[in-house]
Design a protein around this nucleic acid. Sequence first.
DNA 1: GTCTATAAGCAGATAGAC
DNA 2: GTCTATCTGCTTATAGAC
Lengths: 184, 184
Amino acid sequence: MEPQLTRAERRKRTEERILDAARARFAELGYQRTTIRAIAGDAGVDPALVMQHFASKDNLFRKAITEPTTEPLTGDPERLAELVLDTLGVKLGELPGGSAAVLRSMLTHPEATEHARDSLTQQIEQAGSAITGEDPELRAALMLATMLGVTIGRQLLELRPLREASVERIVELLRPGLRNLATG
Amino acid sequence: MEPQLTRAERRKRTEERILDAARARFAELGYQRTTIRAIAGDAGVDPALVMQHFASKDNLFRKAITEPTTEPLTGDPERLAELVLDTLGVKLGELPGGSAAVLRSMLTHPEATEHARDSLTQQIEQAGSAITGEDPELRAALMLATMLGVTIGRQLLELRPLREASVERIVELLRPGLRNLATG
DNA sequence: GTCTATAAGCAGATAGAC
DNA sequence: GTCTATCTGCTTATAGAC
């Protein structure tokens, strides 16, 4: 049984299990407090095997936070505000594993900082080119910074008013401010 | 020379030097990557002396982030928006040492998380009671989350559009959205 | 190929000399 | 009171047995 998917396929499966465990741990505890031992334990493999596959903790982290790219932020200003609010909706529901890991270590791990900065800069540039009027990039940056703050407040700091409110209500309250930034 | 300020006074001076060095290091690198040795080096004292004074790294961190309380967020809704913008102005100029240290480790150190949550919760409650209309606390939380995101984006992630903009311009652009949240 | 055993490094904490 | 020297524990990483 298991025809010819034996070597490469099994290897890939194992790596995915390790990566899933790594994303969960990194997202929960951040880079420094996460240990290879704990990841291995979660994935049901030996710590040495993790090293065999990923060579170093830092490399494992790099692989764990590499995500399929997000959809571009384009369109006219009104539409842009809605797109931004949509991605917020996704993030407030449940953060994708890689994003959560980056977010958690964003302030304390140089590589995560850079990753977050690059990702946000790209989104800012996209959104900025869809904004008319003065200071389009600054306006875009403020829109995304708002989303960042709300995401952190709700998902990581777990501020009570943000936890208890529905995603729809949050989106509804943020809409006017974001539209104001988007339309100039 | 140095009349009777010898013992207690000298001790206090040393502790302040250590605390200043600690705040700077914690703010720059976060809790985990900061070492007692480095703090001692910066303060020009022996590492063992740091332990003599503060007993443990965790206790040193606790002392370093303890700040004189901030002024309350009160008044009518329009005034509230201005107060919030003012404190943002302060934070965008230069973060006070203790705040910067908390901010940096907020996502990765349990005690810092709690400290940040408590501090924000208090501000939210104050601001919430100055807001009329529906969901005052949620609105207040969104205002403060916005400030948090902008502060992180500018001071810690150093997003280019936020770095290059003047504090006044940022405040000007955020005002309509914050007023909208404050006035309901 | 997988795991055991261990090396190597680092940082917090401690004991005791001066 | 201040510093030297050391201990202890933990983690990544490696080498080699099975």
